[in-house]
Amino acid sequence: MQSDESLLSPSADAISPVIDRKFIDSIISLQHPGNPDLLERIIDKYINDFGCLCSGMLLALDEGDINSIRLMAHSLKSGSAILGLTSLAESCKKLEALARNNSTDGAAELLEQMKKDFVEVQNILHTFKSRNHEA
């Protein structure tokens, strides 16, 4: 399951606190000639989802719609975990737990942190995308 594609294994990525490379590798290993851009599709979908979900959660926070926050946090957590985006997934988990406890205390801060993390993550994801494309 561990990818043996050395092109995609920059040692610097492996130690990044925001991303766990082996999840990306796992997705890459599902690719085959009939479906070479799987990783790109997943990353695009995630980036798109993030934008929607993040603004959705901010809106829900304004409106006090805690259940929507919970569902969206759960959804974003799932996608983040799949791509190995450790810190984002951890934030989503906290947000979801808050919502489950019917609370929004610290939710705005968490969302702010997530946005910051995303900026960094987005760059890395774009790098993976283009590398994958070139490969």
Partner: peptide, 16 residues
């Protein structure tokens, strides 16, 4: 699953 990403990846893994 309501998550498209999960559907795509799980589906891909199993179909392969």
């Amino acid at each position: 699953d309501d998550e498209l990403i999960v559907r795509i990846l799980a589906g891909e893994a199993l179909a392969q």
